[in-house]
């Protein structure tokens, strides 16, 4: 497989937007109280991310670089408005629980970050893949936190439904993520040492 395609596809895991880049923390903590909310917000964000990545990549030669940020924000806000209208019409119960955080997708730094760092420099196909990978990486992270918090809340620990519980679970999962990555790096390092020894 082409290396760039592989990089774009694995980006969501290796440079996970939540645990590694630490972007989009506000919705992650606020709406990871249960799996359904987390999944809804994650997919809504992924949809906006994919659409804005594709659009910005298509327009990357048209938008003058001095006004690129306002232009990106308008493009992103347009897709967010689409999601808002869609949820209000077809999924009113989900709209009730995560509605306040949908407009805030506009200022989710993951989306503007990928627009600036990736879509403005790469082809449409790659930007689409990057959007899918990063969007799913975000969804995976927020659903994981949602599952942990919902499970602990269901055991009678109401603390984990509060924002304090959100901070705590997020911190612990991030530490675990760091640990796993450092273990993987150590193993790789030992392997190269062994190979050099041969």
């Amino acid at each position: 497989m082409d290396k760039r395609i592989k990089d774009a596809l694995l980006g969501g895991i290796i440079s996970n937007p939540v645990f590694v880049l630490v972007l989009g923390t506000c919705p992650t903590i606020a709406k990871s109280t249960d799996v359904i909310n987390a999944l809804g917000l994650g997919l809504a964000t992924a949809f906006v991310l994919i659409c804005s990545n594709v659009f910005i990549s298509l327009l990357r030669k048209v938008i003058p670089s001095s006004v690129r940020l306002p232009a990106y924000i308008v493009i992103i806000a347009t897709f967010v408005t689409l999601v808002q209208l869609f949820l209000a019409r077809f999924l009113p119960s989900l709209d009730e629980s995560i509605g306040a955080f949908i407009p805030l997708i506009v200022v989710n730094c993951i989306i503007l970050g990928r627009a600036e760092a990736f879509a403005s420099k790469n082809s449409v196909g790659l930007s689409f893949l990057d959007g899918v990978s990063m969007g799913l990486g975000f969804t995976l992270a927020i659903v994981l936190l949602g599952a942990i918090r919902q499970g602990l809340t269901a055991l009678g620990l109401a603390y984990f439904a509060s924002s304090a519980g959100g901070f705590l679970v997020f911190g612990l999962v991030m530490a675990a993520f760091n640990k796993v990555i450092s273990v993987i790096k150590d193993v790789k390092f030992e392997k190269t040492l062994l190979k050099e020894g041969d």
Partner: peptide, 23 residues
């Protein structure tokens, strides 16, 4: 601070304690 908690993880734990106090 343990190695894997350095930086942001420990900051998040601190934030959790602060949020608890504020609640």
């Amino acid at each position: 601070v343990p190695e894997s908690f350095k930086g942001l993880p420990i900051a998040l734990i601190v934030a959790a304690l602060m949020a608890m106090a504020f609640s």
